[in-house]
Write a protein that binds this DNA or RNA. Structure first.
Length: 924
RNA sequence: GGGCGAUUGGCUCAGUGGUUAGAGCACACGGUUCACAUCCGUGGGGUCACUGGUUCGAAUCCAGUAUCGCCCACCA
C-alpha cells in the first residue's frame, strides 16, 4: 500500500498538480485504478483507516450471489453497482465496511448448462455417472467463477475478495447440514409422501415457486363412464359423462365426483362406474369442490396426478394409483398404453374411446398449465416421498420481523406482496433428484428408520435401532439450491460456529436485490435466518426493478436482445455503465436500457474530465505547483461567485445524502448531474474564469477563486465516487490534496456538507437570469452571436452589489461590452432600435444596443424584438390574470397559509410590474 | 379470481397538495471565445389516460373506468 507522506502528497501514479491527459479513455484507466485499490488493500472491513473509524457501526452487504452458469448480465451489473455505491459511501464515512462476494451453484440451471456442454463432447449425464459428472461440474465451476469474478472487478466492485464464497464450499456444506439437522430435530423438516411437482425433462421434483403457470389453448373432452348393473357388469345404456382436459389420466381414476346438491346426479351418488381400459370399478362420490356449472358437473378423480383430486382423494379415502413414470410415460397400468409418453397415450386413449363410442364430445378450452421455470416442460403432479420444510411457523416469524420494523422493506409497496405470500405459504419441497448440490444428510436403515446427521461423514449408527453406519443408506437426493442460498447471510460468516466475523457482521445492514426473487430468496433468508440465528439477517430489504431492452421486453438469449456489460465497459467505460444503470432507475420499477442512457452517462464523465482539466490548468501563476492546499480559503478573499459555488456544493451534498438515505439512487445521480454540469460547469467555472483572468483582481483573491474551484471539484468527486469510482479516482489523484489526506479517493472522507447561502443563491440566480435574457433577446433578434454589443442593465436594488461585483462576468458571458449598470430603469440608455429586456422578476430591466440601429438590418431586428416582447407580454398577462384571480378569491386569502398568500401577492406584484414595463416598452 | 405497478412533451423518464410541470435524447436556429463538438448558446413542443369527488388550491389525495405490464391463485 502506498502511504501518504507527511506533507500530504502522495507517491501513487498520478500526483497532485499534474495535468490530466487531454482525452478521457476509460477503458485504459479503469483497470489500472482497480489494480491500485487492490494493492492498497482497502476493500477489507478495516482497510479504511483510523482506529476512531473502527468504532463506528459496521456496514455489511452480503452480495446476492450471481449464478455460476453464465457471464455477467446487465441485471447483475445493476445490482452490483448499487451495492458498490452503498459500500463505497459507507467506507468513505469511515465505517468498517464488509461486502462479501460470492457465487451460487444454481443447481438446476447449472445442470442444464453442463448437459449441453457435455453433449458437444458426446457425453450424457448417464454416460458419465454421478461421480465423473460432478468432477466435470467442478471443473466447469472453476472456469465460470473466474469469469464472473473478473467481470465484477472490471465493473469496479469493491468487495472483500479475501472472503469470497461459494454455496458449494465446505463452510456452506456444514451450514446446510447443521441447519437441516436443527430443523429436523425441531420438527420443522419432515419426510413424507405428497403430491409434488415433477419436471419430466429435468427428472426432478420442483418447489411450487419453480412452476410457472402458463395459459394454453387446450381441449375439454367429454367421456362416458358406464354405471354398473346389479350383477357388476357395465350398463351399456346408462352412463355418467365427465369432462376432462387430461384423458390419459383416466387410467388413474378412482372416483367420479359430483356436487352434493346437484339434482341431476343425486340419485347416482353411491353407485359405481367402470373405468375403461383398466377396467376398474370406482364410486360416484359427492364433494363440495365440484362446480356443477362447469363441464357436465361430474368430475373424474385422479388422486395421484392432480392437486384438486388429491385433496378429494384424501377426504374420501380413495386409492391413489400412480400411472406415470419419471419420464411422464404411462407405467404400471397393465394396459397396452404402458410405455407410451403421456401425450401419445392421450391420443391413443381418445381414439379408443371414440371407437367404443364413449367419447361424448370435445370443445376448445382455455386453461393454465404449469411449466418448469428452467426447462419449460409441462410439470406433472406426482405422488412422491420427499423432504419438506414446514414453512408456516417460519413465515410467521418473518412476518413479525417486518411488521415490527426489525426489517424494513423498500419501496414500501412490496410489503403487500410480501405479506400475501407469507400468509398463504405452503410447505416447501426441498428434495431434488439431481446430482449438483448439497446431498440431503439423511440416512435410512433397512428397517426404515431415519437418521439425520450434521456430521461431515454421516452418523455412526441408526438413531433408532443402533444399526451400524455400514448398513445405512444415505438419501440420494440433494437440496433445492435455494435452501443453501437461504443460509447465505450467515453461512458466509462462519455460522454455525460463533466466529469473530459472525459476531461482528451479523445481522447485516442491507439486502439489495431484484424484486423477482423476493420469494425464492429474500423470504427464505428471512425465514431460515430468524429460525436458526434468532435474528432477521438484515435491517433493510431494498428491492430494485429489472433491466429491460429499449422496447421494454425482458432480456433473454432466445430473443437475442441481451446486452453484454463487458462490451459496454470497453466502449464507454464501467463508470458510464454504472451511472446509466443508476440514473435510469426509479426504486422498485423496471427500467429500459438503451444506448441513449449510456451516451448521457459517458458524456457526463467526459464533461467532468474536461472540467477537471480546466481547473488543473487554470492555476494562477502565483500558486506554485507544490503549494500546500489551504484548509479553508480566507473568507476575506472570497467573492460572491466563490461563496455561491460553496453554497451550491453544500446543496448537492444534502441532495446526495438524502437520496442515499432514502434508497433513491437515481436522485443521487440527478443531483450530481445537475450540480456538476448545470451549476458548476455552466456557471461556476464560467463566472470564475473571468475573475481568474482579471489582472486587476488582487493575486490573493484570484488564488481564492482557484482554490474554491479545487475545493468544489474535490467535493463533487467525493460525492460522485460511489457511482463513478474510476474517473473520480483518476481526477482526484491529480488534484492538490490537503495535509493528511490519504492518497486514494476511495478511502477519503465523505463530504461533511457545508453552509447554504440562500440570499446569495437568489442574487446569483438573478444575475444568471439576466445573462440568459440578454442572450435570448439577441438570439431572437438574430443578431450575430459573436458580436460585442453595448448593453445597459438596471439590476434589482437588493442585488445591485452582486451585479456590480459580477459586472465583468456578465459582460463576458452575455457578450455585453461596454456594459453599464444603472441604479434605475429610468436611467437605461434606450435609443430607437435597442432590444428591450424586462425580466419576469419585474424589477430587472436591460437594453442591448444593436450595431445596426437605424439601417434596414436594425429595423428588422427591432421588429423581431417587438414580436418577442409581445409574446412575453401575452404570457405575463395570462399569469397575472391567474394570480389576481387567486388573490380575489377570499377563500384563498383566508384559508391558505400566510406564506403562500404572501408569495402569491409578491408574485402578482412582480407580474404587474413586468406587464406595466412591457406595455411601456411597447408604447401602450 | 385476488393483488401490485404504470399511464406526464415525438422517445425514455423525474416530479406524493402551493407561484410559470422538469431533464436527457430527438427537433429547429446560431456558434472555430485558449476544459470539453462526447461541446457551447437560443428556441419550439405537454388539456399530466378518462370520469367524479375532497380542498382556497390536485399531475400529486380519494373513488371509479380504460389500457398496458407484473405477481399470486387447486376449477376439472
Amino acid at each position: 500500500m502506498t502511504k501518504a507522506r507527511e506533507d500530504g502528497s502522495m507517491d501513487g501514479q498520478a500526483s497532485p498538480g499534474t495535468s490530466l491527459p487531454a482525452a478521457y479513455r476509460p477503458a485504459e484507466i479503469e483497470p489500472e485504478i482497480y489494480a491500485r485499490w487492490l494493492e492498497a488493500d482497502v476493500f477489507a472491513p478495516d482497510g479504511r483507516g483510523s482506529p476512531a473509524d473502527q468504532r463506528k457501526p459496521v456496514f455489511v452487504i452480503i452480495q446476492p450471489p450471481p449464478n455460476v452458469t453464465g457471464a455477467l448480465h446487465l441485471g447483475t451489473a445493476a445490482r452490483a453497482t448499487v451495492e458498490d455505491l452503498m459500500i463505497r459511501r459507507a467506507r468513505m464515512q469511515g465505517r468498517p465496511t464488509l461486502w462479501l462476494p460470492g457465487v451460487d451453484h444454481a443447481s438446476i440451471a447449472a445442470h442444464l448448462v453442463l448437459d449441453k456442454l457435455i453433449e458437444q463432447e458426446g457425453e450424457t449425464r448417464e454416460s458419465l455417472g454421478r461421480e465423473r459428472y460432478l468432477e466435470r461440474m467442478w471443473a466447469f465451476m472453476v472456469e465460470t467463477r473466474a469469469v464472473i469474478s473478473g467481470q465484477h472487478r472490471r465493473l469496479g466492485v469493491s468487495a472483500d475478495w479475501s472472503r469470497e464464497r461459494f454455496t458449494m464450499d465446505e463452510v456452506s456444506a456444514r451450514a446446510v447440514r447443521t441447519a437441516f439437522k436443527r430443523l429436523y430435530d425441531d420438527g420443522l423438516a419432515y419426510r413424507g409422501e405428497k403430491l409434488i411437482n415433477w419436471c419430466p425433462g429435468c427428472r426432478t421434483s420442483l418447489s411450487d415457486l419453480e412452476v410457472v403457470a402458463t395459459p394454453e389453448h387446450g381441449t375439454l373432452w367429454f367421456i362416458r363412464y358406464h354405471l354398473l348393473l346389479d350383477d357388476g357388469t357395465p350398463d351399456p345404456d346408462h352412463s355418467i359423462t365427465v369432462a376432462t382436459t387430461r384423458p390419459e389420466t383416466i387410467l388413474g381414476d378412482t372416483a367420479v365426483a359430483v356436487h352434493p346438491d346437484d339434482e341431476r346426479y343425486r340419485a347416482l351418488v353411491g353407485r359405481r362406474v367402470r373405468i375403461p381400459f383398466v377396467e376398474r370399478d370406482v364410486p360416484i362420490i359427492a364433494d363440495d369442490v365440484v362446480d356443477p356449472a362447469f363441464g357436465t358437473g361430474a368430475v373424474k378423480i385422479t388422486p395421484a396426478h392432480d392437486h384438486d383430486d388429491n385433496e378429494t382423494g384424501k377426504r374420501h379415502g380413495l386409492p391413489m394409483p400412480t400411472i406415470l413414470d419419471d419420464a411422464a410415460a404411462v407405467a404400471g397400468t397393465g394396459t397396452r398404453y404402458d410405455g407410451l409418453d403421456r401425450y401419445a397415450a392421450r391420443e391413443a386413449i381418445l381414439a379408443d374411446l371414440e371407437a367404443r363410442g364413449d367419447l361424448a364430445g370435445a370443445k376448445p378450452h382455455e386453461m393454465v398449465v404449469g411449466r418448469c421455470q428452467r426447462s419449460d416442460d409441462i410439470v406433472e403432479p406426482r405422488l412422491k416421498t420427499q423432504w419438506f420444510i414446514r414453512t408456516e411457523p417460519l413465515a410467521a416469524k418473518a412476518l413479525a420481523a417486518t411488521r415490527e420494523g426489525r426489517t424494513r422493506i423498500v419501496p414500501e409497496h412490496f410489503v403487500k406482496t410480501w405479506e400475501h405470500w407469507l400468509t398463504g405459504i405452503r410447505d416447501w419441497n426441498v428434495s431434488r433428484q439431481l446430482w449438483w448440490g448439497h446431498r440431503i444428510p439423511a440416512w435410512y436403515c433397512p428397517d426404515g428408520h431415519v437418521t439425520v446427521s450434521a456430521e461431515p461423514d454421516g452418523p455412526l449408527a441408526c438413531d433408532t435401532c443402533g444399526r451400524p453406519a455400514a448398513e445405512l443408506r444415505q438419501d440420494p437426493d440433494i437440496f433445492d439450491t435455494w435452501f443453501s442460498s437461504g443460509l447465505w447471510p450467515f453461512s458466509t460468516l462462519g455460522w454455525p460456529h460463533d466466529t469473530a466475523d459472525f459476531r461482528r457482521f451479523h445481522p447485516t445492514s442491507v439486502m439489495e436485490t431484484g424484486y423477482d426473487i423476493i420469494f425464492f430468496w429474500v423470504a427464505r433468508m428471512m425465514m431460515l435466518g430468524i429460525e436458526l440465528t434468532g435474528k432477521p439477517p438484515f435491517h433493510t430489504i431494498s428491492l430494485s426493478g429489472l433491466i429491460r431492452d429499449p422496447e421494454g421486453r425482458k432480456m433473454s438469449k432466445t430473443k437475442g436482445n441481451v446486452v453484454d456489460p463487458l462490451a459496454i465497459m470497453e466502449e464507454a467505460g464501467a463508470d458510464a455503465l454504472r451511472f446509466a444503470l443508476i440514473h435510469g432507475a426509479t426504486a422498485g420499477l423496471d427500467q429500459r436500457f438503451g444506448p441513449q442512457k449510456l451516451e448521457l452517462a459517458r458524456n457526463f464523465a467526459n464533461k467532468l474530465w474536461n472540467a477537471a482539466r480546466f481547473v488543473l490548468g487554470a492555476r494562477p501563476a502565483e500558486i506554485s505547483a507544490d503549494a500546500p492546499r489551504p484548509p479553508v480559503a480566507p473568507a476575506a478573499d472570497l467573492g460572491p461567485v466563490e461563496r455561491w459555488i460553496r453554497s451550491r456544493t453544500a446543496a448537492t451534498t444534502e441532495a446526495v445524502d438524502r437520496g442515499i438515505a432514502e434508497y433513491q439512487f437515481a436522485e443521487v445521480t440527478r443531483a450530481l448531474y445537475d450540480g456538476i454540469w448545470s451549476e458548476f460547469c455552466d456557471w461556476g467555472i464560467e463566472l470564475a474564469k473571468v475573475r481568474l483572468a482579471d489582472e486587476t483582481v488582487p493575486a490573493a483573491a484570484r488564488a481564492a477563486t482557484w482554490w474554491t474551484l479545487v475545493d468544489a471539484l474535490d467535493t463533487y468527486l467525493r460525492l460522485l465516487h460511489p457511482v463513478m469510482p474510476f474517473v473520480t479516482e483518476a481526477i482526484w489523484g491529480a488534484l492538490p490534496h490537503r495535509a493528511g489526506e490519504p492518497d486514494l479517493l476511495i478511502v477519503a472522507d465523505w463530504p461533511a456538507g457545508g453552509t447554504r447561502d440562500e440570499a446569495l443563491d437568489a442574487a446569483i440566480g438573478e444575475v444568471i437570469d439576466t445573462i440568459v435574457a440578454i442572450r435570448n433577446a439577441r438570439a431572437q433578434a438574430e443578431l450575430p452571436a459573436g458580436a460585442w454589443l453595448e448593453t445597459h442593465v438596471a439590476p434589482p436594488a437588493d442585488a445591485s452589489a452582486t451585479f456590480e461585483a459580477l459586472a465583468p462576468a456578465i459582460g463576458r458571458l452575455a457578450r455585453a461590452r461596454p456594459l453599464a449598470l444603472h441604479a434605475s430603469a429610468a436611467d437605461l440608455a434606450r435609443p430607437s432600435g435597442a432590444l428591450e429586456i424586462v425580466l419576469p422578476a419585474g424589477d430587472i430591466e436591460a437594453t442591448v444596443l444593436p450595431p445596426t440601429t437605424g439601417d434596414q438590418a436594425g429595423d428588422e431586428a427591432g421588429v423581431r424584438d417587438r414580436a418577442r416582447l409581445e409574446k412575453e407580454l401575452g404570457e405575463a398577462e395570462g399569469h397575472l390574470a391567474a394570480a389576481e384571480a387567486r388573490l380575489a378569491n377570499r377563500a384563498f386569502t383566508e384559508k391558505a397559509p400566510p406564506a403562500v398568500v404572501d408569495g402569491a401577492r409578491t408574485r402578482a406584484a412582480e407580474l404587474g410590474e413586468q406587464v406595466a414595463r412591457l406595455r411601456e416598452r411597447l408604447g401602450r
